[in-house]
Deep mutational scan, measured.
Amino acid sequence: NITAAIYDEIQQEMKRAKVSQALFAKVAANKSQGWLCELLRWKENPSPENRTLWENLCTIRRFLNLPQHERDVIY
């Protein structure tokens, strides 16, 4: 289940792992930094009809659900 909290989790994970938006986007969703920036802007007004947005957030959720040491190896 995806909630608005995922946006904060993304920010916290980037700080914790000391990774850039570009690197996080690449490893978590195989996307660009610009894409992640755009995604983070949706926090203010996520559209329930935007299926692509929710699919991408689900992809990021799966990455964030990995154990921390696995995420660190991927970075």
Rank of each mutant, 00 (worst) to 15 (best):
I2D: 01
T3L: 06
T3G: 04
A4I: 11
A4T: 09
I6M: 05
I6G: 02
Y7W: 06
Y7T: 03
Y7S: 04
D8R: 13
E9I: 02
I10S: 02
Q12E: 12
Q12L: 08
Q12R: 07
Q12P: 01
Q12T: 07
E13G: 00
M14A: 07
M14E: 06
K15V: 13
K15E: 13
K15P: 05
R16P: 00
K18E: 08
K18F: 03
K18A: 11
Q21G: 08
Q21P: 05
L23A: 05
F24W: 03
F24N: 01
F24P: 00
A25W: 03
K26S: 09
K26T: 14
K26L: 05
K26F: 04
V27T: 13
V27S: 08
A29R: 02
A29C: 01
A29D: 15
A29N: 11
N30R: 13
S32H: 13
Q33E: 15
G34D: 09
G34K: 11
G34R: 10
G34Y: 03
L36S: 00
L36Q: 01
C37H: 13
C37E: 09
E38T: 09
L39C: 02
L39H: 10
L39F: 15
L40R: 03
R41V: 09
R41N: 09
R41W: 05
R41E: 12
W42S: 12
K43T: 13
K43Q: 04
E44G: 11
E44W: 02
E44D: 11
N45T: 08
N45G: 12
P46H: 02
P48R: 11
E49G: 09
N50A: 12
R51G: 07
R51C: 10
R51N: 03
T52G: 11
T52Q: 08
T52C: 14
T52F: 15
L53K: 09
E55L: 08
E55F: 15
E55H: 12
N56E: 09
L57A: 07
T59D: 06
T59V: 06
I60K: 01
I60Q: 00
R61W: 11
R62V: 07
F63W: 09
N65H: 06
L66S: 14
L66H: 02
L66F: 12
L66V: 06
P67W: 02
E70D: 05
R71P: 00
D72C: 10
D72Y: 09
D72E: 12
V73E: 10
V73W: 09
V73M: 09
V73R: 13
